[in-house]
Amino acid sequence: MPPFYAQLINLFAAILLLLSFAMLSQRRVLSLIDLFAAQGLALAASTAVVAWGTGQHHLYWSAGLTFGLKVLLLPWILYRLIRRLNVNWDVERLINVPTTMLIGIVLVVFSFNLAVPISQLASTVTRSTLGIAMACVMLSFLMMITRRKAIPQVIGFLSMENGLFFAATSATYGMPMVVELGIALDVLVGVLILGVFFFQIREQFDSLDLKHLESLREVEE
């Protein structure tokens, strides 16, 4: 019987995976941001539980960092961006949600298989969640492929970063602090730059639909 905190971590991991599936099928951009914030919250909570359960105190810092960045700052920036861009009515027409879900399930099975040899080598109590972390990465990847609008694609990208961060905590109790800070800085700067970039796209095309961005070809006719 694993200790209580390990079960708690498994619970959060399950929530994380569930949220990834929810994001895959969410059509409204604003709800997508809420789901992203919820995912950040689950991630911060599970990191804090790992810190408490294993006595790895530096993980409290990364839990705090995750909370500040992914629950408060990034969703706030995205909300503001959407209001300023005036695209909050933006509803995507998703093709074939059931098929996407089925592909998602296949990806989860694949990730669990891929994670088995690594999990066996890990000595952390959280090793069983490595498969979930990889599944989250794969599902975000799938989300980026299926989305045709700019903002959902970016949220997919950020959610992939969440999955990677979860992989780092579950396999190794987190990367060194200086690296984590650097990654957080990159993510933040990336979102700010994309914000600028969205305004440029909308100014040029009057929409954030990526179908306008498909004219460059490998071989010119």
Binding site: F141, Q153, M160, E161, L164, A171, G190, I201, H212
Partner: peptide, 24 residues
């Protein structure tokens, strides 16, 4: 704009794979 978007997304996703490699 299209070139920059492609650059950001492809290199961003690519380099996310590298982060996973670094974690491993």
């Amino acid at each position: 704009l299209e070139a920059a978007w492609k650059y950001f997304i492809l290199c961003g996703v690519g380099i996310a794979q590298a982060l996973f490699g670094t974690i491993l």
